[in-house]
Amino acid sequence: MGLLDGFIGNVSEVEVEAVVKELEMIVTENEQVEKAYKLVRDLLVFTNLRMILIDKQGMTGKKVEYHSIPYKSITHFSCETAGTFDLDAELKIWISGWEEPILKQFKKDKSIFDVQKALATYVAK
């Protein structure tokens, strides 16, 4: 159900090998992609050095914006689960020097906890 999950807003873990090829122009020589999650067309990638948020834009998705966030720049993050009437769960990530957090919305499922656990693992290093 991974492909369908992406279309309806659920996050699905992506095979690292597929992401490595897509990011070969972005990652450094001593950097390794360790985990990746897909949300519709966007990707949240965790390397041994940083988090990369990949925002595919436009109808074709050929225009891509890469946000590179060193783990030491993440000041804190929050995970808000979906409720009875509010069907979306939210992950907010605050970056030092930014006033507003980065916000990623998830549909009502448990995948937000997988992403939160990965984020906690890398930020706590």
Rank of each mutant, 00 (worst) to 15 (best):
K21P: 00
K21F: 04
K21Y: 05
K21L: 11
K21M: 04
K21W: 00
E22T: 09
E22G: 01
L23W: 08
L23Y: 06
L23G: 01
L23I: 03
L23P: 01
E24R: 12
E24W: 07
E24D: 13
E24C: 07
E24Y: 11
M25P: 09
M25G: 12
M25C: 11
I26K: 13
V27L: 11
T28A: 12
T28E: 14
T28V: 09
T28Y: 10
T28K: 12
T28N: 13
E29A: 14
E29V: 08
E29N: 11
E29K: 13
N30H: 12
E31V: 10
E31C: 08
E31D: 05
E31L: 06
E31I: 12
Q32H: 14
Q32I: 10
V33L: 05
V33C: 06
E34I: 14
E34Y: 02
K35N: 12
K35Y: 09
K35E: 13
A36N: 02
A36S: 12
A36F: 06
Y37W: 11
Y37G: 01
K38G: 08
K38I: 07
K38A: 08
L39V: 14
L39S: 04
L39Y: 02
V40N: 11
R41I: 12
R41F: 11
R41M: 10
D42V: 06
D42S: 08
L43Q: 07
L43R: 11
L43G: 01
L44E: 04
L44I: 15
L44M: 15
L44C: 13
V45K: 00
V45E: 00
F46R: 02
F46H: 03
F46D: 01
F46G: 00
F46L: 06
T47F: 07
T47K: 05
T47I: 09
N48I: 08
N48E: 09
L49P: 00
L49G: 04
L49K: 15
R50V: 08
R50M: 04
R50F: 02
M51P: 02
M51C: 14
M51G: 07
M51A: 10
L53T: 02
L53N: 03
L53Q: 06
L53C: 03
I54K: 08
I54F: 05
I54Y: 06
D55T: 10
D55Q: 14
K56T: 05
K56Q: 11
K56M: 07
K56C: 03
K56D: 00
Q57D: 01
Q57P: 00
Q57C: 04
Q57R: 13
G58H: 08
G58Q: 07
G58P: 07
G58S: 05
M59C: 10
M59W: 14
T60L: 15
T60Y: 08
G61E: 11
K62R: 13
K62F: 12
K62I: 09
K62G: 06
K63M: 14
K63D: 13
K63A: 14
K63T: 15
V64D: 02
V64T: 15
